[in-house]
């Protein structure tokens, strides 16, 4: 068992926290209202190397480990959960897609797990209801059989989503849209893993921030003669939220170090989703009516987390995967494995 954090990691995390504090936190409502992030912010984000954390250096990425990338995304999500999605141009399948066609690096790409799409000889049909992008030049689709690339898929603006509103968002309607195969099941699985890491990290950061905001408020707000944090009903809820967040953080972290065990990541992603949704909702509850208003960030955390929990097949997809495979690892709980 190892729990570690290198100095170099701390420097990078510090940079992410600073970018979050200086550039995102104060403006997140403005980004949401505009439905997009300013172009100069996108450029700055890329400049700092955050846009391609998991891409190899050959493709201009920063080649960060899964653990560090997740920590950076989490730190950014604390300031604005939508930002790492809205500021990222390539999405979770980038590595394998660029392997197939390096020219796509300059375009705006997206990723989806194709659960309800039909993929046949004539092309792909079906609807991808929400892609957190203003523009989709290419779409990578993962199925159980492989990873597929669709160039210039027909996309149009969506209705406003529950959360992640700063990411614009498009709907992609596919009708026998031609595709090319980028890789087999293993490659598809890898990009699904990448998506789970991205989504899990965002939910953790957002939930952590919601909890911090709720705790801070609960110490200031007075009811019945004392801070509401010091009424036991609320104190216990806050203590439970802190415990569950810590549990989620550790489970997710442990899964990140096991590239060879996708079911651990699916389990962790499902767990993070469950915890983040609960913590976010409870955090709104702590603020009472005030929590329901745009005046505080907890309501946005709750909406954003709800949307992130549905991205790329969602936490339910991970849960399904974990349930399907749970009997395959009868000794899975053995700590030494």
């Amino acid at each position: 068992m190892e729990f570690a954090n290198d100095d170099e990691d701390s420097v990078l995390l510090g940079a992410a926290a600073r970018f979050g504090a200086d550039r995102l936190r104060e403006n997140e409502r403005a980004f949401e209202k505009a439905g997009s992030y300013p172009t100069e912010l996108v450029a700055e984000y890329e400049e700092l190397g955050f846009a391609a954390l998991r891409l190899d250096e050959g493709h201009g990425g920063s080649d960060m480990s899964r653990g560090i990338a997740a920590a950076v995304w989490s730190a950014l999500a604390e300031a604005d959960p939508a930002a790492p999605l809205g500021l990222d141009r390539l999405g979770p399948a980038a590595r394998d897609v660029l392997e197939a066609d390096g020219g796509l690096a300059e375009q705006s790409g997206a990723f989806e797990v194709a659960r309800d799409l039909s993929i046949g000889a004539k092309g792909v049909s079906g609807i991808v209801p929400f892609v957190p992008r203003a523009k989709v030049d290419w779409l990578a689709l993962a199925t159980r059989d492989g990873l597929f690339l669709l160039r210039e898929p027909p996309a149009h603006a969506t209705e406003r989503a529950c959360g992640l509103q700063a990411c614009s968002g498009v709907t992609v309607v596919l009708d026998q849209t031609p595709f090319e195969q980028v890789g087999g099941p293993e490659v598809a699985r890898r990009s699904i893993d990448e998506a789970r890491i991205f989504a899990g990290a965002l939910m953790l950061g957002a939930a952590r921030d919601a909890h911090a905001a709720a705790t801070e408020y609960a110490l200031e707000r007075i009811a019945f003669g004392k801070p509401i944090a010091h009424h036991q009903g609320l104190a216990f809820q806050l203590a439970d939220a802190a415990t569950e967040l810590q549990a989620a953080e550790l489970l997710f972290g442990a899964a990140l170090s096991r590239e060879d065990r996708p079911e651990l990541l699916a389990n962790a992603h499902a767990f993070v989703g469950e915890v983040a949704l609960r913590v976010a909702e409870r955090s709104v509850q702590v603020l009472g009516g005030h929590g329901y208003l745009y005046d505080h960030r907890v309501e946005k955390r709750m909406r954003d987390i709800r949307s992130i929990a549905s991205l790329w097949g969602g936490a339910t997809d991970s849960e399904t995967f974990a349930a399907e495979n749970v009997l395959e690892f009868p000794d899975a709980l053995e700590a030494s494995t």
């Binding site: 990691d9 653990g67 953080e249 972290g253 442990a254 030494s336």
Partner: peptide, 21 residues
Amino acid sequence: MTDRCTRIDARFDAGFNNVLL
């Protein structure tokens, strides 16, 4: 509030494994 580790590995080293056995 919660701690962040960028590297967590749940596997046991040989010393822990021997005790386990």
